[in-house]
């Protein structure tokens, strides 16, 4: 290979490497408490739906406003506002991952990822529950 070829290869590799570095902008997994300490920072909360508190969604008033409470494994709770409809099987979810940021005492959420018992059939406990209910 000519030196010029090698130079071009190295340049391309370097360019892509730079882009890579520049794009590494990872978020973090947090608890509700640690997210509160990071006001305005984009985080992933691992929590579950707090079923003892109301889920507020009224499509006739505003179809893009869902408010509910999430509780994490340490017992902390927070109100969550999600500007969208209730995701599929939301109320059955075991565990939810909330992507967004804490603003004051409210978690402003852009995306909800869920683990649902029905999607996760290999969850034995759930299957046992289903089979016993028949």
């Amino acid at each position: 290979m000519k030196t010029s070829s090698i130079v071009i290869l190295v340049a391309i590799a370097a360019a892509i490497g730079t882009l890579l570095m520049y794009s590494v902008n990872f978020s973090t997994y947090d608890t509700i408490q640690s997210a509160r300490a990071k006001q305005g920072r984009y985080v992933h909360l691992i929590a579950r739906l707090d079923r003892s508190k109301p889920i507020q969604y009224d499509a006739l008033k505003d179809p893009n406003y869902l408010s509910f409470y999430a509780i994490d494994s340490l017992g902390a709770t927070t109100q969550v506002i999600y500007h969208n409809t209730e995701p599929e099987e939301f109320e059955h979810s075991d565990r939810i991952v909330l992507k967004g940021q804490m603003k004051g005492n409210v978690f402003q959420c852009d995306e909800i990822l869920m683990k649902c018992p029905s999607k996760y059939k290999d969850d034995k406990a759930q299957l046992q529950k289903t089979v016993s209910q028949q």
Partner: peptide, 13 residues
């Protein structure tokens, strides 16, 4: 609701 300008409003009733 404290909605900000760039919060999504993509569902229509």
């Amino acid at each position: 609701t404290g909605r900000e300008e760039n919060d999504p409003v993509e569902n229509l009733t």
